[in-house]
């Protein structure tokens, strides 16, 4: 029987080390499918150096446009648009601001002369790649695109199929910052969430909001405090907070420039320096998470 676990790494605040830690874990975990679910600003490929096997176009949101030959400038579409996306051009005529358009297609429906049509944005891509750590499913969004949540859902679905086909033990999702639509899409249906946080006022504030979100999904959480030595007081407060919420603290990692050096070398921390304190602590922590996840299964 396949006990495959779908695990998502999140932080609330950006820059706490999600991607560096996901990459470091890749040096430790075997038989895993990786997902870069931070589709807005995907960085995992910089370390993974993927060899692209499949490229897919993701059907993005609808975007409306006006055929000026048919348009009578009656302005009905503009009256109905709730997104202020339709405006009069200087010199006459109406135009649609494609960045403001949310693709509801109401303008198309109310236009009495059929001058408006919508097309799906084809400016988003997702990829299945081979890497030295196993398969990676990742994406590239066009600038300013909508629907990052749906794109996250799409690549996680693909990763799940790959994981099933190759009987993988884990799917590891490197998640987006924040708590909005992309974060929600990266949590939905996951078996566990690993919170990567840092002991700063903002890191703490942000992880508290994230915990509230993940709790609403009733998904078990593990916490990892990164750069714990930048503020020991907040670190202590965070530890009490996690304890009060029954969130298992996996451990704490010290601030280390090894993280940046390995990123510059485009390597994982363990590839960059086998003796790195951070790498060693992480492999120990992973063993604990893996064994406690297996226990849940039994």
């Amino acid at each position: 029987m396949n006990n495959m676990k779908d695990i998502t790494i999140l932080s609330g605040k950006g820059g706490t080390g999600k991607t560096s830690i996901t990459a470091a874990l890749a040096s430790v975990i075997e038989n895993t499918v990786f997902v870069d679910a931070d589709v807005d600003a995907a960085d995992l490929h910089i370390i993974f150096q993927p060899e692209n096997k499949e490229t897919h176009v993701f059907d993005g949101a609808w975007v409306a446009s006006i055929d000026t030959d048919l348009c009578t400038n009656c302005g009905l579409c503009r009256e109905h648009c709730k997104f202020d996306a339709i405006n009069f051009k200087t010199g006459g005529g109406l135009e649609i601001d494609s960045f403001a358009c949310e693709g509801c297609r109401l303008c198309e429906r109310v236009c009495p002369v059929g001058a408006i049509s919508s097309e799906r944005s084809t400016n988003n891509f997702w990829y299945v790649s081979d890497t030295r750590f196993g398969p990676l499913v990742h994406a590239k969004m066009g600038p300013g695109e909508e629907n990052s949540g749906k794109l996250v859902t799409q690549i996680r679905k693909s990763a799940k199929e790959i994981a099933k086909a190759k009987n993988a033990d884990y799917i590891l999702n490197d998640g987006p910052p924040g708590i909005g639509c992309a974060a929600i899409a990266s949590i939905t249906g996951a078996d566990a969430v690993i919170l990567i946080t840092e002991p700063s006022k903002s890191g703490f504030h942000d992880v508290v909001r994230l915990v509230e979100l993940v709790q609403s999904f009733k998904i078990p959480m593990y916490a990892l405090i990164n750069k714990f030595d930048i503020n020991l007081d907040i670190c202590n407060q965070m530890e009490s907070f996690f304890a009060s919420q029954d969130i298992k603290l996996m451990g704490k990692l010290p601030f280390s420039e090894d993280v940046v050096h390995s990123m510059v070398a485009k390597k994982t921390i363990l590839e960059y320096n086998k003796e790195s304190e951070i790498g060693i602590i992480l492999s120990e922590l992973w063993k604990e998470v893996a064994s406690s996840e297996q226990k849940i299964e039994q």
């Binding site: 807005d40 910089i46 960045f99 909508e146 910052p177 924040g178 510059v264």
Partner: peptide
């Protein structure tokens, strides 16, 4: 602004006269 490059960022900068991008000198 929020991090990223998708719609919330576009909304934030939509009426800005000037945008300052804060970066760090790392590959990411």
């Amino acid at each position: 602004a929020p991090p990223g490059t998708s719609c919330p960022v576009v909304e934030t900068i939509s009426d800005a006269d000037f945008v300052i991008l804060v970066t760090e000198p790392t590959p990411f």
